[in-house]
Design a protein around this nucleic acid. Structure first.
Lengths: 231, 231
DNA sequence: CACCTCAAAATTGTAGGATGATTGGTTCGT
DNA sequence: ACGAACCAATCATCCTACAATTTTGAGGTG
């Protein structure tokens, strides 16, 4: 006979779960303002205290944000993302870049092995977008296309955990990354390395793709240290 | 003049911060039972609701665990660790191993570049521990020494973010890893690769260390797929 | 003494109400 | 039209009370 363990789930955790589902499913999209506490109390059929404890848990988790007198809003849809973001604030840019390097290299290797035909198509598409941005000399568009391209590469690894971590890291880094990419984008080097990376993945050349990532990150780190020297 | 309106920190968050500090500092070590709510109310000078919201936030964050009628206990000392652990439950072992591969390879490369003399000493010490465990044919001790060795390698990278991520991943994986290592530890291959890895780091041979990690992970993945076939 | 039973104490869980503080919009006077 | 004063909505904090659960210990029984 199996003893019923702590199967008792507190009301608060039940409410938290339901709210998390609503947020992750997009029913409560990022930016949405939640109904006031009174309505939520009725909706979940719990007391004020219970509801507030649930909301507070999500606030501390980084998914919600409350403002006295104004209301409660959704400010993120991922617990992991919020946790990583908080941790990254305590790290310097170089540390973060090194971890990104690790993830991106592995993503490139896996992508080279596992990329599907759709992945290849997506890669070509994003490369075109980069090229067009360069020809139009539109830095803003290039930065966006660049970030997108790297997301596509990560996606081609078909490792959901890796994709998640990578996405959250670049999310948290987006401002710094944008600046860095903007600094480097003026050179042809950047785009040449992109080409080598994408070609490697398409040709299923694992080592070639990994080597391209190494070059890419070396270039990024160099630019970073140069821009730091200027200060 | 910069207006800092958002400087208003809620009482709950203040209490949460203090408790987090107590936990991270070790004043409330993992496993410790917290004082009852009444005492904490007086200690932090807040009402029961406020205190409970703070506790609930930490419970949901994975740092605390409450049991009605029994009390509240510390069950983890890191928010990031708890978040990663939860995410890992949704991933399969292969995905997790691949990410660990990425982190460990980067750690080895950085360690080869940055290892200090103390690091070298620590590495030699842990290698000895592994050897002794093998000679004593003590599997339990070998597994522990193996995990310790890899932690030392990560530490030698001198990248705190990387160290954190790696530690939390292996923490969350500990049971699976223990089993895997136990399966592989009977062969000499495992120890030979360890030797190559440590030698590479000590000799500051970046590529050699990275190659050793590749071999190590390949061996681990092979063992994993074999053990999965048996089911 | 050893062991079981059960009641009481300790502790967290849930409910409901009251008041203060902040925000955003509205109204009103100029 | 513009700014100041007001007002309503909303969250923040505190309080009390009771329920549910676990631990503890007293008392009985063999």
């Amino acid at each position: 006979m199996k003893i019923e363990k702590t199967n008792r789930i507190s009301l608060v955790e039940q409410v938290v779960s339901q709210m998390e589902s609503l947020i992750e499913s997009g029913a409560w999209a990022v930016g949405t303002r939640l109904p006031p506490e009174m309505e939520l109390m009725e909706r979940f059929d719990v007391s004020r205290n219970t509801l507030r404890e649930a909301v507070r848990a999500l606030v501390h988790g980084g998914l919600l944000q409350t403002k006295q007198g104004s209301g409660t809003r959704v400010c993120s849809s991922s617990v992991l993302g919020a946790a990583i973001e908080r941790r990254l604030h305590k790290s310097n840019l170089l540390e973060t870049l090194e971890v990104r390097h690790a993830l991106e290299r592995e993503a490139a290797r896996l992508a080279a092995v596992r990329r599907s035909e759709e992945d290849v198509q997506q890669l070509r598409l994003q490369m075109d977008a980069c090229l067009k941005a360069i020809q139009a000399n539109d830095h803003q568009a290039y930065v966006e296309a660049d970030i997108q391209l790297h997301q596509v590469i990560a996606a081609a690894s078909h490792n959901n955990l890796l994709i998640d971590l990578y996405e959250h890291m670049t999310d948290a880094l987006h401002s710094s990354v944008r600046n860095l990419v903007e600094l480097t984008s003026c050179t042809d080097v950047h785009q040449r390395i992109h080409g080598k990376l994408v070609d490697g993945i398409i040709a299923q050349n694992e080592d070639g793709a990994a080597e391209a990532v190494n070059e890419y990150m070396a270039h990024l780190k160099e630019t970073l240290s140069k821009s730091l020297e200027e200060l």
